[in-house]
Amino acid sequence: MIWTVPNVLTMLRLLAAPGLAVMFLYFHRPWADWFALLLFVGAAVTDWFDGYLARSWKQTTRLGTMLDPIADKAMVVIALMVIVGYSSMSPWLVLPATVILFREVFVSGLREYLGDTAGTLKVTKLAKWKTTAQMVAIAVLFAQGVFEHYLWGSTDGMDQAVVDAILTGGGDDDLGLRWKYDGMIWSGHAGLWLLWLAAALTLASGVDYLRKALPFLKD
């Protein structure tokens, strides 16, 4: 293995993927949400840096080319698994997550089947956009979990009528319930919209790859 800086960053991103799930095994929320958010954002940033450095320093390797999409898919798949697992299983969340997971598995299988001709399915700009949309959506959804658990932690032991009064502006908001509630609502809605956008881009990218692979699947 060639331990160039881009390859090291890719390997760290690959190792960070299972770390997302580990955060929720060893830490209580909202700390688990915070650590998962920081880990995911940090890993997403390395996704841009390792490609940029590999091209700038002319350190592109076959190993890095292979590991980079694997690390991206591992991050997205495990993050979505964690988010869906700790959610209310809303169909508005489960459906786009299912589309994304199906496409990632399908294209990976398609590349494996094509073998030596898998170079036909080179990463396109559309695929890069879908990866960016996926990572932004997942980061916002992790942030939604942070707001949610700070809100419920602040209201622990409070009467629901008092909470409702504060949130509607009818009481003193000494604990900052309104901004936590607004943060939870806005990040939740934004995360879902971004996830649906990511699912649409993911589906379009999958169809594009399938169209390119069809001449090799005629038998």
Score class of each variant (00 low, 15 high):
L214Q: 12
L214Y: 14
G183R: 05
S187M: 10
A199M: 12
G206D: 07
G206L: 03
W179M: 10
G183V: 08
A213D: 10
A204P: 13
M184F: 15
L192Y: 10
L194I: 07
Y181T: 01
G183S: 00
G188W: 06
A199Y: 12
D182T: 06
G176A: 04
A199V: 10
I185C: 00
D182H: 03
G176N: 08
I185V: 14
K180E: 08
D174C: 02
A190I: 07
L175P: 10
L210C: 09
L201K: 01
S205V: 07
T202P: 15
A199T: 10
L177M: 08
I185E: 12
W193F: 15
G176K: 02
G176R: 01
L210G: 04
Y181N: 13
A204F: 14
R178S: 11
R178C: 05
L177T: 08
G176S: 05
T202S: 14
I185M: 12
G191N: 00
L195T: 08
R211P: 03
L192T: 07
L177D: 11
Y181G: 01
D182V: 08
V207Y: 03
L194P: 02
G183C: 01
W179C: 01
L177Q: 07
A190K: 02
L203S: 03
L177C: 10
A204D: 09
A213Q: 07
I185F: 07
W179N: 12
A190Y: 00
W193Y: 14
W193H: 07
A198K: 08
D182A: 11
G188T: 04
A204Y: 07
G183E: 02
Y209C: 10
I185H: 05
G188D: 02
L197F: 12
T202N: 05
G191A: 01
L195C: 10
A190H: 01
A200Q: 07
G206R: 01
W179S: 13
W179V: 11
A198G: 11
A200I: 15
I185A: 09
A213N: 08
D208N: 14
G191C: 02
A204N: 03
Y209M: 06
G191L: 04
K212D: 15
L201W: 04
H189C: 10
D174Y: 01
L203P: 10
L192C: 00
H189S: 05
W196G: 05
A204L: 15
D182K: 02
Y181K: 06
L197D: 00
W196V: 11
L203H: 06
W186T: 05
W193D: 09
W179I: 12
G206A: 05
L197N: 03
L175V: 06
W193G: 15
K180H: 11
G191S: 01
K212Q: 15
T202L: 12
A190R: 04
L177N: 04
V207E: 11
H189N: 13
W179D: 15
L203C: 10
L192G: 12
A190S: 13
R211Q: 13
G183L: 03
L210F: 14
D174L: 08
T202H: 06
L175S: 02
W186E: 03
S187R: 00
A204C: 14
A190T: 09
W179A: 01
R211N: 13
A190W: 08
S205K: 05
T202G: 14
K180D: 09
R178I: 13
Y181L: 00
L192I: 14
